[in-house]
Nucleic acid binder design. Structure first.
Length: 215
DNA sequence: TAGTATCA
DNA sequence: GGTT
């Protein structure tokens, strides 16, 4: 049962069943073995994010003192990013309502206590494509607002297996993660992928970066 | 300000 | 919790 939180912002609770979550976790573990997570830094100031990141797909999102950008290689190893995880790719085909494949799968790794401040995903040239979010591990408090930072916000709980489509009029909505829920808190303990620290969370976001060339 | 800190 |  999907819920439209706002026009184009669609929450699919429990979209991935236990088997799919386990499969996706295995795929992510393999990606991280090849493309280890890095600590992103703020442009100009160099202040570190609390979240760690890696990527899969032809392009990966990176942030350092030089700025935000998409690039084809891992900043540490200089190797190309690993292939997109098939389970995430299948979710894109099912939920994105977009004719071209995703080019980037950003992997955000949250340890307990980490957060992600309110922000917009606006580094993609193709804003017609949605961003598709998939959650693994611990549940988290997701906050979203409007197109202006000062717009009022609402919060929902994102749990392991949830999918969230951020598209249409909500494509540039401000959003972030306020906190993780302790495991064992309420229902949905969520399975614990082996690549996460105890109580950690993993979020995958699939994005189309460049506009597809017309046939 | 995809940051943290601080205040109203 | 919203804002600087």
């Amino acid at each position: 049962m999907a819920t439209e939180l706002a026009p184009g912002l669609i929450h699919h609770p429990g979209y991935l069943d236990a088997a799919a979550r386990a499969r996706l976790a295995d795929e992510v573990a393999a990606i991280l073995a090849e493309a280890p997570s890095v600590t992103p830094r703020m442009p100009r100031t160099g202040k570190p994010f609390s979240v760690r990141m890696s990527n899969a797909g032809p392009l990966g999102w990176v942030s350092d003192v030089a700025g935000y950008r998409y690039q084809p290689n891992h900043p540490g190893t200089a190797r190309p990013w690993p292939a997109l995880p098939p389970t995430a790719r299948a979710a894109w085909d099912a939920l994105a309502s977009y004719p071209a494949p995703p080019e980037a799968c950003l992997i955000n790794l949250y340890a307990p206590g980490t957060r992600m401040g309110l922000h917009q995903d606006r580094d993609e040239a193709d804003l017609a494509a949605p961003v598709l979010s998939l959650s693994l591990g611990a549940a988290a408090l997701f906050r979203y607002g409007g197109l202006r930072r000062s717009d009022p916000t609402r919060s929902i709980r994102l749990q392991a297996g949830d999918a969230l489509v951020i598209g249409g009029p909500s494509r540039l909505v401000f959003h972030g993660i306020d906190r993780l829920y302790p495991v064992g808190d309420l229902l949905g303990a969520g399975d614990e992928p082996g690549f996460l620290p105890p109580g950690g969370r993993c979020n995958l976001t699939l994005r189309r970066v460049t506009a597809p060339v017309p046939p």
